[in-house]
Amino acid sequence: MKRFLSYSCAFIFTLFTSHAYGSKSHTIGQKGKIFNQEGNKVTEIKIKKGESITFVNDDNTPHNVFSMTKDHKFNLKIQQPNSKSSQTFDKPGEAIVRCAIHPKMKLKVIVE
C-alpha cells in the first residue's frame, strides 16, 4: 500500500511538472568552473518557455552568472560557494549564458 501511494504520488508529480507551459526548474551546477548536470559538463540545455534554471555554486570560488543576449538579459551577481540563484526564461529563443569571472563557463539555453 505504502508503495502504491508513493508511486501514485510520483505519477501525479510528473503529471504536474511536465505541463506544456513549464514551471519546472532545471538545476545546473558550477563545479570546477564547469557548468554541469549531475557532474557531466553541459554546453547546451533545452527548456520550455516559462521554466527556470537554478544555478548552484557547488564550487570553491565565487561565480557570476549572466546573459547579455537580447530579450534574455539578466545578472545573478556574485554567487558565493554553496549558494543558489534561479532565473526564469519567459521568451522563446536562444540565450548565451556565461560566468562574468570565468567566461569559459558558457551555456546555450534554448527556450522552446
Partner: peptide
C-alpha cells in the same frame, strides 16, 4: 588552475 595555470578568467 589547470596545466596552463590559468582559469582564463578576470580578476
Amino acid at each position: 588552475s589547470g596545466w596552463r595555470f590559468t582559469d582564463d578568467g578576470f580578476h
